[in-house]
C-alpha cells in the first residue's frame, strides 16, 4: 500500500494505482476529468491531457516535485506523493487551455448532435472551459461516413481519444478502422469504405466521449434528456446481456451498455443486444437506472420529484401491458423500490 495526498485529502491505495484512480477512490470534486482514459481499455489514456495534475512532492523517498504537469491517468502513485489538482491555479489554467484546444476545431453542433446531454466534452467545456473562444479561423471539417450499417462517424466532432481504436483492438477479432494521416488532419477512418462488422463493434459508440460515433438506429429519434433509462437484461450467449434501455414514452429508442458514474461501461454488450432487441418484451426490466452523472441529463433528472413519479407511472403501465401479453416477469424486477 502507498499513501498519496490529493488536494489535501490523503488515502492509502495499492501500489501501481494511478493518481486518477486514487482520486476516484477519494471521490468528489477533486477527481480530474478524463476524456481519453478508460479503465477497461488497456493502454488508454495520456492523449487528451485534461486530467493533468501537479505533483508537488514525488514521494517520501524522493520528495522533489515533478518538473511538468503529469497525466493523472497514466502516472502511478508513489508512497508519500503529494498531488495538486483543483488547489493549483496553474493546473486549472492549463486545463482550461486544454479544453480550449479541444474545442477550437469542434463544430459545436450540439443542437443537432445525438450525444448532446450525455457528452463528456459538453461537461468538460461547461465545468472547466472559458466562456468565449479566441479562435477565429475556419474549423476543420470532415465528411460524415457510415462505418457499417449501424454506426455513423462524424469525424468533425472527434477529439482523437483513441478509445474506439482500442475497443476494436482489444474486443474484436480484426481491427478494420484506425487513425490515418497525422497532426491536426489525423482522423479515425477505415481508409477505404470498409464496414466495421463484428458483434462487439457497437461498444465503440459507448466509449466515444463525444458525438463522433453515434448509433444510427437512434439517430435523430430524440434528445437524450427526453428519454428515460431503465436497467434491463436478457439471456445472451455473446455478452452479459445487462443493458440500459432508453425509453421515450412506451417505446425503447435505444439500447446501451450500463455506465458508471465516470461514464465508463460496466460490462460490454454485443451488437445483437444493442441493435436488434428494442421491444420491451425482449427484456427483463430491473428498474430505473441510477444516473450519477453531472451533465445536462442529470440536471433535469427524473429521479427527483415529479419526474420520478412520472417514470414510475410509465413503468407500471408497461408492466400491465407485459402481463397482458403473458410475459413471465422476474418477481419484483419491475418494482422501482428494489433499485
Amino acid at each position: 500500500m502507498a499513501k498519496v495526498t490529493i488536494d489535501g485529502k490523503t488515502i492509502e491505495v495499492p501500489e501501481g494505482t494511478t493518481i486518477l484512480n486514487a482520486a476516484r477512490m477519494i471521490g468528489g470534486e477533486i477527481v480530474p476529468p478524463a476524456m481519453c482514459y478508460y479503465t477497461k481499455l488497456e493502454t488508454s489514456g495520456g492523449y487528451c491531457r485534461t486530467c493533468i495534475v501537479k505533483v508537488s512532492k514525488g514521494s517520501e523517498k524522493d520528495p522533489r516535485p515533478m518538473p511538468k504537469p503529469v497525466p493523472s491517468c497514466r502516472q502511478t502513485i508513489m508512497d508519500g506523493m503529494v498531488v495538486e489538482n483543483i488547489t493549483s491555479p496553474e493546473i486549472l489554467e492549463a486545463r482550461a487551455g486544454v479544453v480550449e484546444f479541444l474545442l477550437i476545431n469542434h463544430p459545436l453542433d450540439c443542437p443537432i448532435c445525438d450525444q448532446a446531454g450525455e457528452c463528456s466534452l459538453q461537461d468538460l467545456g461547461y465545468e472547466h472551459g472559458k466562456m468565449k473562444t479566441r479562435y477565429e479561423f475556419k474549423r476543420r471539417e470532415f465528411e460524415k461516413i457510415d462505418i457499417g450499417d449501424k454506426i455513423k462517424l462524424h469525424m468533425t466532432r472527434c477529439i482523437l481519444c483513441y478509445r474506439c481504436v482500442k475497443v476494436a483492438e482489444q474486443l474484436t477479432p480484426g481491427r478494420v478502422h484506425g487513425v490515418v494521416n497525422r497532426g491536426d488532419v489525423a482522423e479515425i477512418s477505415t481508409y477505404i469504405q470498409h464496414a466495421v462488422d463484428n458483434e462487439m463493434s457497437g461498444n465503440m459508440i459507448d466509449v466515444c466521449p463525444v458525438g463522433a460515433l453515434t448509433d444510427k438506429t437512434f439517430r435523430f429519434k430524440s434528445r437524450v434528456w427526453f428519454t428515460k433509462p431503465v436497467d434491463a437484461h436478457r439471456k445472451c450467449d455473446t455478452c452479459s446481456g445487462k443493458v440500459r434501455l432508453w425509453y421515450k414514452g412506451e417505446e425503447a429508442l435505444r439500447v446501451t451498455a450500463r455506465k458508471d458514474k465516470y461514464g465508463e461501461v460496466e460490462e460490454w454488450i454485443c451488437n445483437e443486444c444493442r441493435f436488434d432487441h428494442k421491444k420491451t418484451s425482449d427484456w427483463t426490466i430491473e428498474g430505473p437506472s441510477h444516473i450519477d452523472h453531472h451533465s445536462v441529463i442529470s440536471a433535469n433528472h427524473y429521479e427527483t420529484g415529479n419526474a420520478l413519479a412520472a417514470l414510475k407511472h410509465d413503468i407500471a403501465k408497461q408492466q400491465k401491458q407485459l402481463e397482458g401479453n403473458d410475459m413471465k416477469l422476474k418477481e419484483g424486477a419491475m418494482n422501482p423500490n428494489n433499485q
Binding site: V176, G178, V179, V180, N181, R182, S189, Y191, I192, H194
Partner: peptide, 12 residues
C-alpha cells in the same frame, strides 16, 4: 498484418 495497419502507417 491487417490492411488498416498499413494504411495507418503509410498515411503517417
Amino acid at each position: 498484418i491487417q490492411s488498416i495497419e498499413v494504411y495507418e502507417v503509410a498515411s503517417f
